[in-house]
Nucleic acid binder design. Structure first.
Lengths: 159, 159
DNA sequence: ACAGATAGTTTGTGTAACACAAACCATTGA
DNA sequence: TCAATGGTTTGTGTTACACAAACTATCTGT
């Protein structure tokens, strides 16, 4: 935990680079997403929702690290576009269980398909295997520990 | 997740995940960077500047994909903190060559050191080797896109 | 030498994506 | 019954932009 004197401390911080690459993708994504009535933030929410399955709005707020009042607005957008559904939890009727609708899942897939070109532009320096590695690293970092198996499997072939 | 036995087409879009992870880092970075008088955007600029060596403000605007009027403000911040220097280009005195100062390089290193903990929090699911891989992938991706932009942009000289 | 393009700057306007606070309702649990 | 909780609405403020207009200094082609 505390500072071990310099052993194999990697001097490379990803943060700024991450920021940079993300911005490039987001800028282009906006124009691709607009015809679908979506914004990058919606995509993130839908993606998280897909990966998480149903969850409460609080869970979502925590995962997105957003203020819950703003999550409400975000979900209002998505719900009025019929991309997500808010169901009352039977266990605790104060709670909303937020879930992707079929329409939502389809729209997400559609958006991802449309974004292929964007990623080709920005991640053009990476071949397919590298992009898959990148995806897996991000997925794992985002806290889906199950990705471990997937990452392990990468070096022989894609999973 | 879907186990597609299919071909080589990677169904995974990184964009949303990239956005998500980047946000997590940026949120925490802000509090770490504030005592240093920096913001995440400054870090990105400094990083790019370090990787690029000296360049004109237009080059920088293109690399950052920011409007040049806003780049001016960004550089004003950095210059008044003595982190960068604007020198007139001898070849074309309209042009400013923007360069990291020694102070700037030191401050950048300091910031990166301070950000180690932040990345530990957010990228905690990745070991050192994976983080290095992530860094390299991002670096490569960023480099390619810059090269692409540069090819279009440049008439003759530096790139 | 002159005209038009170019690099940078300033100022000003607008917008999106937030954070945060306050007040409110329905529901839960002690 | 009463306090806490999940969600919602409204309202305020900030930041990070994009974009436009007008200006200076400088360069380049004719």
């Amino acid at each position: 935990m505390s500072e071990l004197p310099v052993v194999n401390q990697p001097p490379h911080r990803c943060g700024a680079l991450l920021d940079h690459v993300t911005r490039r993708i987001r800028l282009r994504s906006e124009t691709v997403l607009t015809p679908l009535g979506l914004r990058p933030r919606h995509l993130v929410a839908l993606t998280v929702l897909r990966d998480l399955g149903g969850c409460s709005q609080q869970d979502l707020a925590k995962t997105l690290e957003m203020d819950s009042t703003n999550v409400v607005g975000l979900l209002n957008d998505l719900e009025s576009a019929n991309l997500i559904e808010r169901k009352r939890s039977p266990q605790d009727r104060r709670r909303h269980i937020v879930e992707l609708t079929d329409v939502g899942a389809k729209q997400l897939a559609k958006a991802e398909f449309a974004l292929a070109e964007v990623e080709d532009q920005v991640l053009g320096g990476l071949d397919d295997e590298q992009r898959e590695t990148l995806y897996n690293l991000l997925y794992q970092a985002a806290g889906h520990a199950e990705a471990g198996a997937c990452v392990e499997a990468v070096h022989d072939d894609n999973c």
